Computed example of a mutant assay.
Amino acid sequence: MTPPILRRVADLRAAVAGWRRAGEKVALVPTMGALHEGHLSLVRRARAEAARVVVSVFVNPTQFNNPDDLAKYPRTEKADAALLAPLSVDAVFAPAAEEVYPGGHATTVRVTGVSEPLEGAHRPGHFDGVATVVTKLFGMVQPDVACFGEKDWQQLQVVRRLVADLDLPVRIVGCPTVRETDGLALSSRNVRLSAADRARAAALPHALRQAALDVAAGDDAAAATGRLRAALAAAGFDSVDYAECRDAATLGPARPGDPARLLVAAWAGGVRLIDNMAVPPEG
């Protein structure tokens, strides 16, 4: 059955209040729509975590530092609802921007430290927009648990820091990255790749995995990420924004003995792809 689509915060809160009165836990899956199997895996995990599941579908304008990127972001609400229908989602929250940011809105949530390198350095203001909208969604839905994908590793760490620092009563669940058969991480941006660039993109996860294996084997991280960059250039990528080995939790410099993560952002045919892997890679 197609889940009800709620547009107003008041209607959402009324639904959640009814579930709360029945003693039911609530899980939230925040998305920007254009759903794919990666998102659906989050919904399945949310269903395992709580009796009620809310999926938010909101293309958040405050996290886009490039207006063209915001304009190009796919909006496929009808198709999204159809994908969610078999998954027993209890509500889709799909508000207008004016509902989330009404006239006079003047508050921004900023998480320092973990938000500043990597994506933060290349997309100024992006994580301020993420932290603000996530805080608002948590206030609107008041979930017991929220599920986020590990593909956006830095975002996941920003949200965890936000929840810890503000003492928000939400348990954050990180869910594994879902990949195509050739290893490319599922992303709403993948549909914008030409056939040739889609073929090139398959080099990204393979080069990333090799670098993670090299670092785990004791190779110098700078040398391993240098080879990663070279492999992407050889595959035909336009450019690489970053390819770095970082502390998995803080995203500061990786320290011996602490969990590390390799993170990369690269351009293929005008499409920016991001990915990450644990050191050593899982699976």
Rank of each mutant, 00 (worst) to 15 (best):
N190R: 07
A199S: 01
A91G: 04
P86N: 04
R192Q: 12
A221M: 08
A27H: 02
V215E: 11
L42K: 07
H206R: 11
L251I: 01
A22Q: 15
A91K: 03
P86W: 04
P259C: 14
H126P: 03
R227L: 08
G129H: 04
E116Y: 02
A195M: 02
A121N: 06
R209W: 05
T181Q: 14
M32E: 12
A221H: 09
L118D: 09
V191K: 14
A260K: 08
V114R: 05
V26L: 07
E180L: 06
V271C: 01
A106F: 08
P117R: 11
R272M: 10
L168H: 11
Y101F: 03
L6K: 00
L228S: 08
A202K: 00
T2C: 11
E116K: 10
L232E: 03
A71M: 12
A223D: 14
Q210K: 15
R7Y: 05
V29L: 13
V159E: 02
A79F: 04
V57E: 12
R255S: 10
D68M: 07
R261G: 10
G269L: 02
G226S: 06
L42P: 06
C147S: 06
P102H: 03
S88Y: 02
P205N: 05
L84V: 02
L42G: 07
V271F: 01
A96V: 00
P74Q: 12
H126W: 05
G120A: 11
S188P: 01
V59R: 15
L251F: 07
S188I: 07
A79L: 12
A50T: 04
A121D: 10
T250N: 02
